[in-house]
Design a protein around this nucleic acid. Structure first.
Lengths: 342, 342
DNA sequence: CTGAAAGCGCTTACAG
DNA sequence: CTGAAAGCGCTTACAG
């Protein structure tokens, strides 16, 4: 499938390749007449510029590499869409790769992206990524990188994440104000910032409201539906039962819903559920899920902005760590005890 | 961020660039000792091969370009994941682009992908794409292209789609067997294959079951939640009301659920709903949505297989049009009249 | 076993 | 206004 090149056009018109190159880029060197002629025949021949050759000389590809853990997770699908949108608005193309929550393929993706000489990297580490060597290497190579949503511990790289502790406080303040006292927490793994940040947030919010924490009710699992399912089943075997389950994300909450339905526990009558999530998904739950609202679109936009800033600023300023605040949205998975409160 | 090149390694070791290139590719020319030495120092220096330079000479990039209409649509998010998986299994990287259901950006994406000299293109056209000129040009350029899920009319290109008519028949046969007679159809636009294929399927299935079609109950809209919402509201204003709504996809069905809830029409008691969809999403509906089951993962896999076949086979065989059959899954949005039937 | 030559498709100074 | 020269980082024959 040998495509048309500038040489082909040049031969056809009996000029040199450079003339063609210049004409196509509207270089002032070339006369308007010749430009038009060259452009016309380039269209006729179906010329499409070879971007990879262009990139080779330009040393800048105007493409960004993104590593997403899993598109089957709604949240990331939305984030990816907004990343692509925001990037193209700034004149960048995007290479989307998916790690499937697997560190091996995360590393492979990173290598490929670097090989393609992307101008910068936007990465959300997989749940199981404990090894930060790759990221140290990338830093040494001086390739602009921004973490979003999740970032590995032990790194002070540029990042855009949600203010999980702030969100936890906002939620538990509201819920406790309705008279609830007994909270369980289905947490993620503690090695990812999300895992322990959310847990810390939960603990801090409980303390702030002078609520007692029952260690039995803190159940560490993963971030998937089945993890929530399993955690609920574990909880269900214990003697004491909480009033509220505070889940690390909406997928875990989904597992809770499923398990509760199976064993005949009713939401919100028998138990309330609140989770980190985003409203589009929360609305598809029945009853709609009470959430600490995280907007993946906002996340994506800000992440791209942060990355492009880093790429385009010549003086290497300090890495900025951006934190997005989030609000509590009641919805219907927690009963309002006092109907009079708004 | 000038990265290490083969020249750098060569200088360091006082050999020529070619020697380095060969050693790194395990060319038999080079002695084992030298190879090891070169590999070692290439690691030390943090060398990462410049894939775009490599691609320039190789004339083959081992990357595939994909155009997705919208990742916020669950179905495509799942399909994309499986496309990436299947591609990487075959040794290809994937450039994912999203058109946001917009023909303008669809074309832009296509141009960029071609510019990056992807080895092949996998595209699902946007809802509003009526112009097939781009695809004719691409065909002239001899770039392997496979349509998946949706394809524009008037083209006989290679494609992988669902057997919509077969699915409609399978569904309406089952539903009619329970004694239902009065079906409405919320259809998509007729210019896309999906739109009219599904409509045709519906009509054929009705005819096959000797059911009368009320033209008033065939409401043409789009593929989004609000389209289903609007169609339901239109239907609700008519004098006669059907027993079953047959919707063009699950998003439209979602709109139907929403509208029905608003006006107090109960599913499945007052009206039954069936739609093309996939089970993962159908399970999140309350009640779970009766569907003509389309598996986005299977679609993605087969699409990649089809594309890679096309790319790698030297003799240009006839374009194959692959059709995936789909089954009806009852779930709970249509009442079984006869409880005894399984 | 090692290297000199030519080229992939483009661009950037530099001359004329 | 037009072109000859050199180079981006790599690879592929072809010699020695």
């Amino acid at each position: 499938m040998a495509l048309i090149t500038q040489s082909d056009i040049a031969k056809r018109l009996n000029v040199t390749r450079v003339t063609v190159s210049k004409a196509l880029r509207d270089h002032p060197d070339i006369s308007t007449k010749l430009k038009e002629k060259i452009k016309r025949t380039s269209k006729e021949l179906g010329y499409t510029p070879n971007l990879i050759a262009k990139n080779l000389t330009a040393r800048k590809t105007f493409t960004l590499g993104v590593v997403i853990p899993d598109l089957e997770n709604n949240f990331f699908a939305y984030a990816t869409d907004s990343i692509i949108d925001a990037a193209s608005e700034k004149g960048y193309n995007v290479f989307v790769t998916v790690s499937r929550e697997n560190q091996q393929s995360e590393i492979l993706n990173l290598k490929n992206l670097i090989g393609m000489r992307v101008d910068g990297l936007l990465v959300c580490v997989s749940q199981h990524s404990r090894d930060i060597e790759v990221f140290n290497e990338i830093e040494k190579l001086n390739i602009p990188l921004v973490f979003f949503d999740r970032k590995p511990d032990g790194l002070n790289s540029q990042s855009v994440v949600f203010a999980d502790n702030y969100g936890a406080i906002s939620a538990i303040d509201s819920i406790a104000a309705e008279g609830y006292k007994r909270f369980a927490h289905f947490s993620g793994y503690s090695n990812i910032s999300i895992g322990h940040n959310r847990k810390e947030g939960f603990l801090a919010a409980m303390k702030k409201n002078e609520l007692k924490i029952d260690p039995e009710w803190i159940i560490e699992g993963g971030y998937e539906i089945e993890d929530g399912y399993n955690s609920f089943m574990k909880l269900n075997q214990k003697k004491k039962f909480p009033e509220i389950i505070f889940a690390v994300n909406d997928r875990v909450a989904m597992g809770v819903y499923k398990a509760a339905r199976e064993v005949g526990v009713k939401i919100p009558e028998d138990i309330g559920v609140v989770a980190y999530g985003f409203n589009e998904t929360a609305q598809t739950f029945t009853p709609t899920l009470s959430i600490i609202n995280q907007d993946p679109r906002k996340l994506g936009e800000i992440a791209i902005e942060s990355l492009v800033d880093k790429i385009e600023q010549k003086n290497n300023l300090l890495d900025r760590q951006i934190i997005i605040k989030e609000d509590f949205i009641w919805n219907n998975s927690i009963k309002r005890k006092n109907k009079l409160r708004k």
